[in-house]
Deep mutational scan, measured.
Amino acid sequence: MSIQHFRVALIPFFAAFCLPVFAHPETLVKVKDAEDQLGARVGYIELDLNSGKILESFRPEERFPMMSTFKVLLCGAVLSRVDAGQEQLGRRIHYSQNDLVEYSPVTEKHLTDGMTVRELCSAAITMSDNTAANLLLTTIGGPKELTAFLHNMGDHVTRLDRWEPELNEAIPNDERDTTMPAAMATTLRKLLTGELLTLASRQQLIDWMEADKVAGPLLRSALPAGWFIADKSGAGERGSRGIIAALGPDGKPSRIVVIYTTGSQATMDERNRQIAEIGASLIKHW
């Protein structure tokens, strides 16, 4: 067993022997301040990774656009098919120029040779490549099948209805392509620590998230040296922004954090800054 596999296998073990965790309302004060600064709703939840206990939450059962955070769930569904012998990570998928959609920095470079399922998941999570996500959605049967996968996990809230990039439209009061912070946090925890996926697939999923290259201005910008984070960000229309993450000190994750916002007129930089400040408060009061 590799060191990384050992780390993920012992996530519940280490967490069980940690000192009790206590909620700190100071972080919620910052979440509410972010709402004021952005002029928009902000949803927040913080779960203990081992027990699933909610440590703090704000608007945990209000719907927010998922945006690209759905790509972690998508690759979880792909990995479940791999575990069941219905898919192979090494299978190569070929596609054409007509398949390319807006923001496809990886797939646009491989029109000639195609990409493997493993490479597509890596591109979808680490670079948020939209064509990679659409190609992977095709392998599982489309958005409705991802929703069905989530329902089978016990998540009857999260739903995907459309493809990239239309799913980022974020129309107010439109339930399409949305989740709730509580539902997303619980589902992410199941994917990373539950028995739904094999140990190898859980490790692969967290490795992809740990290698995320496009979430630097968010929670990662607030992390002290030595902290662990595996995350996936999302951005959408109407001032929408979000991030889902597993993080913790001492090089291992111990909490799940989900943050979503929508309806702001603020710039992307300002949305990023507010999420980073929430992260800084979380870490300060850990």
Rank of each mutant, 00 (worst) to 15 (best):
S233C: 12
L223A: 10
A124Q: 05
D48H: 13
T267Y: 07
D177Q: 12
L74M: 08
G85V: 14
T139F: 04
A170W: 09
E210W: 11
E145Y: 15
S80D: 02
E87I: 08
S51Y: 00
E164F: 00
G263D: 10
E166M: 11
E87D: 12
K30F: 14
Q97L: 14
P249S: 09
K190G: 15
N173K: 09
E26L: 14
T158I: 02
D174H: 03
S57Y: 11
T178M: 08
N130G: 15
V72M: 02
T178P: 05
R81H: 07
P25G: 10
R159C: 02
L247W: 13
S233P: 07
T69C: 03
D99F: 07
I140Y: 13
L192Y: 10
T267P: 10
G236K: 06
I259T: 09
E62W: 00
K71M: 00
S281A: 07
S80H: 11
G216I: 05
P60Q: 07
A124E: 14
L146V: 09
T107G: 01
I125Q: 00
G52T: 09
A34R: 00
A84K: 04
E102D: 02
E175W: 14
G236D: 05
P65Q: 05
K190M: 02
T198Q: 08
M184G: 07
G234H: 03
E26C: 15
I93F: 02
E102P: 04
L135S: 04
A132K: 01
N98R: 00
L191G: 10
G85M: 15
E35N: 05
D113A: 00
D250S: 03
E277M: 14
E108K: 14
I206D: 13
H110N: 00
I259Q: 11
I259C: 12
P249L: 09
L150M: 15
G43D: 00
V101D: 13
V157C: 08
A211Y: 04
G216P: 09
R241F: 09
N50C: 09
T261C: 07
R241N: 02
I54W: 09
A230S: 12
G43Y: 03
H94N: 05
T139R: 06
R162M: 06
G226E: 13
P143F: 01
R91S: 06
S233R: 08
A132P: 01
V82L: 09
P25L: 10
A123L: 15
R118N: 01
K232M: 08
S201Q: 15
S201D: 05
V117D: 12
T139Q: 14
E35A: 11
K53A: 07
A235N: 03
N134F: 09
D161A: 07
S264Y: 13
S68R: 00
T187Q: 11
A266G: 07
P249Q: 09
E166H: 10
G39C: 14
P60V: 09
P217C: 10
L55R: 11
E210P: 14
A230E: 15
Q203H: 09
L137D: 15
G85L: 15
N272F: 15
Q265F: 14
W286R: 02
G39E: 07
S264M: 02
I125G: 01
M184A: 08
R271G: 11
D174A: 03
S51D: 01
K232R: 13
K252Y: 10
G239I: 02
G76K: 06
G242V: 11
K32S: 09
W163Y: 12
L160Y: 07
E62R: 00
T179S: 10
E61T: 11
M180Y: 11
I244L: 13
E164R: 04
S128F: 06
D155L: 12
P224V: 07
G226I: 01
L111C: 02
S57F: 13
A276P: 09
E108I: 00
M115Q: 13
T116M: 14
V106K: 11
G90T: 02
V42F: 03
P60N: 11
P60K: 03
R271W: 03
H24F: 08
L282Q: 04
D129P: 00
A230L: 09
R241A: 06
L223N: 12
A132M: 02
A200D: 15
A215F: 04
L111E: 01
E195F: 01
E169N: 04
P65I: 01
V72A: 11
V72D: 03
T261R: 12
T179W: 04
T139M: 02
G142V: 03
V258G: 03
S221Y: 04
L219E: 10
T27R: 02
C121H: 02
D161T: 09
S281K: 09
G236E: 08
I283K: 11
T147Y: 05
P253W: 10
E195H: 02
D129L: 00
G194F: 11
G242Y: 03
T147G: 11
L197K: 01
L100F: 03
Y260I: 03
N173M: 05
L150I: 15
R255H: 03
G236S: 05
G263R: 14
V42G: 06
K71L: 00
C121W: 01
T267W: 09
N152I: 09
A124R: 09
E119G: 02
L197S: 07
A132S: 08
D250A: 05
P165E: 00
Q203C: 13
G114V: 10
L120V: 06
E175M: 13
D36Q: 03
L218Y: 08
E46D: 14
A84G: 08
E164L: 01
V106D: 15
R159D: 00
T147A: 06
P172A: 10
G90K: 11
E166C: 09
L79T: 15
G52Y: 03
A182C: 10
G90Q: 08
P224D: 12
A276K: 11
N152L: 12
R238Q: 02
D269H: 12
K144Q: 14
D250M: 02
K144T: 09
L146F: 10
P25T: 06
Q37Y: 13
E210T: 11
L188V: 09
N173P: 08
Q97F: 14
S221F: 13
T131D: 01
D177F: 13
G216W: 15
T116Y: 03
A148L: 14
L111M: 00
L197W: 08
F70T: 08
Y44A: 02
K252P: 08
A148N: 12
E119N: 06
R220N: 03
G43V: 01
G85H: 15
E164D: 10
I171T: 06
T131R: 04
S68L: 01
H151C: 07
D155N: 13
S51G: 01
A133V: 06
V29L: 08
G226D: 10
G251E: 12
T27P: 03
K213S: 03
N272V: 00
S96W: 15
I125P: 00
V101L: 06
E237P: 09
T69H: 04
L192I: 05
T116Q: 09
R59I: 02
A123R: 15
D174N: 01
I125Y: 02
W163G: 11
S264R: 07
R220H: 05
M67P: 01
V78T: 06
G263K: 14
V72S: 03
R176Y: 09
V101F: 11
Q203T: 11
H151P: 06
P25D: 05
A215D: 13
L218T: 03
T198I: 14
A40P: 06
G76M: 14
P65K: 02
W208M: 02
P60G: 07
A77H: 00
A133Y: 03
